[in-house]
């Protein structure tokens, strides 16, 4: 026992053992099993091999196609909304143009929505996008003289509500990523650019963007798969009603 504790050879395997067990039991075996199950017709108590029939059925399914298209649509729209705008916010926060107190307050305020659970956020937004003229979203558009809208019952407005929920929850987090990235850019680069006579826009294009590239790539990556894997938000906002499936 003592020998084992001091063995440099055995130690690493003991250290990583928890991960190896978890990986094997909860990820590897289930994935293999589900790969096998996908070629079976499964009824209670018996299953028969049917090769790729399940896949043929899946790809022929109308709802599946709509769902895949919707996922891509949601993903692309969130890329447009959740990357350039937070980048702008981060630059403005970093520029210290507004007073330090207001800037700090804005930073904290932006982050708070990310703390709420999707159940709470979805509930708030579902009630804000209510059907009556007394719901907040309808009150807002009535300022411009528009009639009350049944937001969550139409595919276009339903998508708009979903995207506004996504922006509300994720703008803050993405802004923080960009702020962290901006703070890693050495001040000298901007000074050098100033000496060369670059204006603010040129500095942004030629210094900020290239230096932020790792952060942009990271945020882009998590946004792509976050967008494609999104389930919670739509589940909470629409409460499982399928009327919105139609693009």
């Amino acid at each position: 026992m003592k020998k084992l504790l001091y063995s440099k050879k055995a130690a690493p395997y003991i250290f990583i053992l928890p991960f190896v067990i978890t990986f094997a039991v909860f990820w590897l075996v289930p994935i293999i099993k589900s790969g096998y199950m996908s070629t079976q017709k499964i009824l209670p108590g018996q299953s028969t091999f049917i090769a790729f029939d399940n896949f043929t059925r899946l790809f022929g399914d109308r709802i599946f196609k709509i769902a895949v298209l919707n996922s891509f649509k949601y993903m692309i729209l969130t890329l447009i909304l959740l990357i350039p705008i937070p980048m702008l916010f981060a630059c403005l926060i970093n520029s210290k143009l507004a007073g330090p107190k207001l800037t700090n307050f804005f930073k904290s305020a932006m982050f708070v929505p990310a703390l709420t659970s999707v159940v709470v956020a979805g509930t708030i937004f579902r009630l804000i996008f209510g059907e009556m003229d007394t719901a907040l979203a309808n009150q807002f558009i009535s300022i411009f003289g528009a009639e009350p809208v049944k937001w969550l019952k139409e595919s276009f407005t339903g998508f708009a509500a979903l995207l506004s929920l996504a922006c509300w929850r994720w703008w803050g987090v993405n802004t923080m990523y960009f702020i962290a990235g901006l703070q890693n850019i050495p001040e000298d680069y901007y000074e050098a650019a100033s000496i060369d006579g670059a204006n603010t826009w040129q500095k942004f294009i030629h210094v900020t963007i290239p230096q932020l590239k790792p952060t942009i790539v990271y945020v882009l990556t998590i946004s792509i798969y976050g967008g494609l894997a999104m389930f919670n938000e739509s589940y909470m906002l629409y409460q499982g009603k399928i009327t919105h499936l139609i693009i």
Binding site: F89, L92, S95, L97, A98, G99, L102, T103, F105, F106, A109, M110, V112, P113, V120, A121, T123, I124, F125, L127, I128, L136, W168, W171, G172
Partner: peptide, 24 residues
């Protein structure tokens, strides 16, 4: 003018973000 613009934007956005909390 830029300072005032950014200040107004921050105030406006802070209110917009906190509105759902006030609503609940």
């Amino acid at each position: 003018p830029l300072k005032i613009l950014v200040t107004l934007l921050f105030v406006f956005l802070s209110i917009l973000i906190l509105i759902p909390f006030w609503a609940i």
